[in-house]
Design a protein around this nucleic acid. Sequence first.
DNA 1: GGCTATTTGTACGTATGTATC
DNA 2: GGATACATACGTACAAATAGC
Lengths: 107, 107
Amino acid sequence: MPIEWTDSDPELSLRLDRAFGEPLRVQFERALRQSIQAGRLEAGERISSTRRLAAELGISRGLVVDCYTQLEAEGYLSSRPGSATRVGVGHAEHMPAVEARATTIRD
Amino acid sequence: MPIEWTDSDPELSLRLDRAFGEPLRVQFERALRQSIQAGRLEAGERISSTRRLAAELGISRGLVVDCYTQLEAEGYLSSRPGSATRVGVGHAEHMPAVEARATTIRD
DNA sequence: GGCTATTTGTACGTATGTATC
DNA sequence: GGATACATACGTACAAATAGC
């Protein structure tokens, strides 16, 4: 049974399927990366905390942490302890779709 | 091809060999126990997390967890959730092999 | 400035499924 | 079939940094 999740504004919508064979982490990581690439998330904008997103998606926080870590290494996200994780400024600027859209996504 | 690993300070150095016939867990567990027995690890000192050590040794984390569990049961290590594993205070000072022998093999 | 809640980061321990020998 | 090893996912716990009041 796939997991679908859409925020109030559909800034981040993704679909995970446990029975699909592909690991949840891979599915989630790709969905998140594509959301940034497509400009559905604005540069510098806060994204959900690992706890909230995990709870909303029905997956463990560890998975979310792992994916955030990976995407941060790729430059898509920026985080520091005690503060919210944000979309990396470097990447989103270079993405054409971003400025065109000016999407608002909060937390 | 043996796996060799040495920490920055060579407090823990070990050598694993997949082709040796002896299970990796046995090799690793013995190497770790001997490091403590020989006093190369100081009492109360932090040791590598299961994730880090597994990654550095190229073995699965499950194996490291199993060995840590066994050595904790023998008193060589001390751990609690959310905190780093440390060398057991009782052991690193006085002698070792006694408690180890008294312990039954688990699992 | 201080206090508290939140968040990240880290770490352990466990469970389940799979592959291989 | 059993033992060994690995991969994936989860739950929990704690410390440090931060943000907000």
